[in-house]
Amino acid sequence: MMRTPAPRLRTYLSGYVLSLVLTVAAYLLVTHPSYSTSLIVGLISALAVVQFLVQLVFFLHISAERKPRWKLMVFIFMVGIVLIIVVGSIWIMNNLNYRMTPQQINTYLNNQGGGF
């Protein structure tokens, strides 16, 4: 009566080999750069996301869960929150950085009676 069927040796081994290949591929892309920097950043980010999914399926067995899939639902909710925190923070801070020059910050602080 286990909710998730017992995992098998083959599952773990395929997850391990796939993760190893993805890790080494990302490492080689950085140590032997043969593309533009922005392309490499895109590629290694994609490799990280793929490895994330590989470990979710092969190590955490998220796809083997039976209905009702509470683990999966909590997981999807978490991904939503994480994206809001990370993407939101980077967006807001870059926007602030773009809109304010150091002089503007200094003038603002001087008007407040402080400054650098």
Binding site: T23, A26, I44, A48, F52, Q55
Partner: peptide, 13 residues
């Protein structure tokens, strides 16, 4: 995985 990619690999670039 994410520390490896975001901190170290992107840092190395």
């Amino acid at each position: 995985i994410f520390i490896f990619t975001i901190v170290y690999l992107m840092g190395g670039l």
